[in-house]
Design a protein around this nucleic acid. Structure first.
Lengths: 197, 197
DNA sequence: ATTTCATCTTAACTTAAGTCAATGCCAATC
DNA sequence: GATTGGCATTGACTTAAGTTAAGATGAAAT
């Protein structure tokens, strides 16, 4: 599974293969069981921790003021989660993170990565580029969400992330699209009619 | 105006003041007139360019398939724009960027910044941290947008970015909230009633 | 086999946003 | 001062999403 990291890193780095190998060897790769929580809303968190998803699916959600559960992200293969972004001022977590499947994650500690950046000068460049990319992707995701209606969002996700349709329950997917499960049901029904003509 | 950069950089860097000064001196700071376009939808763009906003407001928008203009970002003070994220495969721009006010921007070229990273070893660390932050902020923005209704979004923006309410026309703000100008009008009217009780 | 539970769907009804058209407002221009 | 154009609001109407409640399905548990 570590092998997957080579392909991924290749796009961002000019580190030598030897360097890549020793970096990857040093990484903390963990298998984490379905149902495990990486953090829970309201719990104090270690904001130096980050995750890179090699395999599996991690759901981000929270319970809002009215007691409703709202899913705001599905992190899957090649996605990165920075717990720093989950922290409120008091260092408790705004969101819960739960593994929807058995996952294989690289667990990173931003503090100890600083040592790695010292050892491998190209590594921080790689990380910077990756972050620039994640930033951009997320801005585009946001732009997409703003510009489209619930129905368009659903169509769009069937294109961009078709795996999600089978990997996660519909009511969580609905929530992630900003609508109720009932609305998603209706949208799918509407689409059956119009696409079969 | 360059002075503002010191304060901002301080939060991300351990560069010496002398280093910071020479970096800032080397930056390309430009005054750009209201109405200027930084890029236009459909035009070929230079995806190595990035902007840091020292003062002013830059609007991101596009014309959708039905010919409607949709505003998807307002970049203001301390925000960063990476044109790389605007590029389609053919290097034309998905979005237009226009200055809503006279702006003062740091105009960066990601290529030539590589030289700077060589000269100042702490600079890339600073950029990496900034990008990690932007990534996180945008993920939270997206989570916020997903979790809230149009009315909640409007309330939320009056808290988080009250300046926007006066800086940009209402119909563009409405679009940015994912609704029509008419709906925004009604939301404001509703709120007058309920808050005055 | 039965129960339990979660999930998805359907229906009836309410609410809010979209649409279309008209009006008022203001600032810029001639 | 009259006119134009852009913007914000309002009203009437349509459409779609939210809400509530009731079934249908299926998988897991007993």
């Amino acid at each position: 599974m570590r092998e997957k990291l080579f392909q991924y890193m290749a796009a961002y780095t000019n580190l030598t293969e030897a360097e890549q190998r020793s970096i990857i060897k040093a990484l903390d790769v963990r298998e984490i069981a379905k149902g495990t929580y990486l953090t829970r809303q309201g719990y104090t968190l270690d904001s130096t921790i980050c995750y890179f998803i090699l395999a599996g699916c991690v759901r981000q959600y929270h319970i809002d003021e009215r007691g409703k559960e709202i899913t705001t992200s599905f992190f899957t293969e090649d996605h990165v989660i920075l717990l720093a972004n989950f922290a409120k001022q008091d260092q408790t977590s705004k969101y819960s993170l739960t593994c929807m499947e058995d996952c294989i994650l690289v667990v990173g500690d931003m503090e100890s990565e600083l040592d790695m950046y010292q050892q491998y000068s190209g590594l921080e460049t790689m990380t910077r580029r990756m972050m620039e990319n994640y930033y951009g992707q997320t801005r585009n995701e946001l732009a997409n969400f703003i510009s489209s209606s619930p129905e368009e969002r659903y169509k769009s996700i069937t294109q961009s992330r078709p795996d999600l349709l089978t990997r996660v329950p519909q009511h969580q997917l609905a929530s992630y699209l900003g609508i109720t499960p009932e609305s998603l049901s209706r949208i799918k029904k509407r689409m059956q009619h119009t696409t079969s003509i």
